[in-house]
Amino acid sequence: MSWGAPEYLYLVLVLNQVALPEEALFILRYQKFYSLTRPGGAYKQLLSPEDSSMIPLLSAFQRLAVYRRVKLPPQALRGQALYDYYDALVAKYIGRERLYW
């Protein structure tokens, strides 16, 4: 495993004490670490019990995060409504304070 953008984002969020749950932080940190979720993975013996309990969640996220183009349904948020939706999520979980990078 290398130190890359997901680890950097994880550290920024943790050091800024954002309100994301531990499961979300775990997924952000290990989202690209595909070897961790492969059957018979070589890293299983290095996991804590808490980490092991999150592997199914990480695996499900990795399957969903695969890029694919889909046609949006007519009721999908667009434009300002989409911006407002995500702006509210950022305010709730990350806050409006300046993040320290």
Rank of each mutant, 00 (worst) to 15 (best):
V14M: 04
E7V: 00
N16W: 07
A5Q: 14
R38Q: 15
I27A: 10
A5F: 04
L15V: 06
S2Y: 05
A5L: 15
T37P: 01
P39K: 10
G40I: 05
R38A: 14
L20R: 10
A24R: 01
Q31S: 06
L36D: 06
V12K: 11
S2F: 04
V12A: 12
P6V: 04
Y30V: 00
L9E: 06
S35D: 15
L9V: 10
N16H: 04
L11G: 10
Q17N: 09
R38N: 12
P21M: 07
L20V: 06
F26E: 01
A19T: 08
L25P: 00
E23H: 04
S2C: 06
P21L: 08
P39I: 14
P6Q: 13
G4E: 15
Q31M: 06
S35W: 14
W3D: 14
T37N: 03
R29E: 14
L25G: 04
P21Y: 09
G40M: 03
Y10K: 03
G40L: 04
V18E: 07
L11R: 15
Y34A: 09
L25Q: 05
E23C: 01
A19R: 15
F33C: 02
Y8R: 13
T37D: 07
Y10R: 05
E23K: 11
L36S: 05
P6S: 13
P39A: 13
Q31Y: 01
S2N: 14
L11D: 15
E23F: 00
V12T: 12
G4Q: 15
E7G: 03
E22A: 14
I27T: 04
A5G: 09
E7H: 11
Q31W: 02
L9M: 08
L11M: 11
F26R: 03
K32N: 13
Y8D: 12
E22M: 03
A19N: 12
P21H: 12
F33M: 02
A24L: 05
P21W: 08
N16Y: 04
R38F: 02
F33A: 03
P39M: 10
G4D: 15
R38G: 03
L25H: 03
T37W: 00
Q31V: 01
E22F: 00
P6F: 02
F26K: 01
F26V: 03
I27D: 00
T37F: 01
T37Y: 00
Q17Y: 02
S35F: 12
E22N: 08
Q17F: 05
G40K: 10
K32Q: 13
Y30R: 07
V12Y: 08
L13W: 04
L20A: 08
V18N: 09
P39R: 11
A5M: 12
L28D: 00
V18S: 08
A19F: 10
L15M: 11
L20F: 03
L11C: 07
L28P: 00
Q17W: 06
G40E: 04
